[in-house]
């Protein structure tokens, strides 16, 4: 049986206290919420900690409630299952509920949390393996090694951001409330990530994701489409989060953020610029999807080859755009074809 390494367990009374506990020894202390990412990684010795600080029980991290200016606030400790089934989210921000409901498998969604999924470690199939395997292959840059094994010439780590909810939260212009030892601060979710497989989070290690605030202006449309090999369990091969404001047929604003195409969620800026102000029709959707897929550069370190994953980005973006808002039917020639 694969077992956890030894650690001490601490149960703070508040998020601030939790942050203070981590800040005491940030190198050796990790926050524990649902444990679905952390505990397997401890078992495989991908992460090491002398102390785990549990935030799962904290009441201030619980609940989904109305926030200021019509926003919805989701507690960092809310489980993915609870978020996926929440009536408010399903009604006002369906893309977010969908994303939460697409993470991993049913039992893991019962444990995994909103805060945890925003902070989920980047993935690489040279890194997400047991200690003996990683030792045998010679350890990678992300953990204990000196060289990136997927791009040996590279000085950086290319592990893949694989959160389903993060791209959606960014597309919805969400803000996280982070609690440190001295109080709270707010950070747009878009600013929570760095394009680096190792140092992928911009938050300080001790900061607790207390809640996620998602603006929900009337009429906002959203959708998330995830591609994976199986109907469950798997991380995204490609994911597309779309948030859309339409005024009749006119696109007031469009935000498209991609999952699993880089070390952070990737915003499809060119596609967004193209879509804004245009008419919501078939041609616009196709071109938007084409532009969105442009910057995606998958590597051979996740499920499926780079050849296939690269081609699939456009498909998932197109599907997400269609899911966000029905596209008026027009006849467009030559939409089929693999490439």
């Amino acid at each position: 049986m694969l077992r956890l390494p030894r650690f001490s367990y601490r149960r703070p009374a508040s998020a601030r206290e939790a942050a203070a506990m981590v800040a005491e020894d940030p190198e050796q202390t990790l926050l524990l919420a649902g444990g679905t990412d952390l505990l397997p990684k401890l078992k495989r010795r991908q992460l090491a900690a002398r102390v785990l600080v549990d935030v799962r029980h904290l009441a201030e991290l619980a609940g989904i409630r109305p926030g200021p200016a019509g926003a919805v606030e989701v507690g960092g400790g809310v489980t993915l299952a609870a978020a996926a089934g929440d009536r408010t989210l399903v009604g006002a921000l369906p893309g977010y509920a969908t994303a939460a409901g697409q993470v991993s498998s049913p039992p893991l969604r019962e444990a995994g949390t909103i805060g945890g999924n925003l902070c989920v470690d980047t993935r690489c199939n040279y890194y997400d393996m047991g200690e003996e395997w990683r030792r045998a292959i010679g350890y990678c840059l992300k953990k204990d090694g000196v060289q990136c094994l997927v791009a040996p010439g590279s000085s950086r780590c290319w592990a893949v951001s694989s959160s389903d909810t993060a791209p959606m939260a960014i597309a919805l212009q969400g803000v996280v409330v982070l609690v440190g030892p001295d109080g709270e601060r707010e950070l747009p979710v878009a600013d929570l990530y760095r394009d680096d497989g190792i140092d992928y989070l911009a938050k300080r290690p001790h900061e607790v994701v207390a809640r996620l605030r998602l603006p929900a202006p009337p009429g906002r449309r959203s959708a998330y489409v995830k591609l994976r090999r199986r109907g469950s369990i798997d991380f995204p091969i490609a994911g597309a989060a779309v948030a859309l404001d339409l005024d009749g047929p006119a696109i007031v604003s469009a935000r498209i953020v991609l999952s699993a195409v880089g070390s952070s969620p990737v915003e499809a800026v060119a596609a967004e610029a193209f879509l804004t102000g245009r008419r919501w029709d078939e041609e616009t959707v196709l071109e938007g999807a084409r532009l969105a897929a442009g910057p995606a550069k998958p590597l051979d370190n996740a499920d499926g080859s780079h050849f296939w994953r690269k081609r699939m980005v456009r498909v998932v973006v197109e599907q997400a755009l269609r899911a966000a808002a029905p596209v008026p039917a027009v006849s467009v020639a030559g939409t089929a074809g693999a490439t």
Binding site: S105, N125, D128, M129, G130, W133, R229, R230, G231, S232, I233, D234, F235, D303
Partner: peptide, 11 residues
């Protein structure tokens, strides 16, 4: 990929 996550078994 000696793991049940990466070695894909139908659900």
């Amino acid at each position: 990929w000696p793991s049940m996550l990466e070695y894909k078994s139908l659900t």
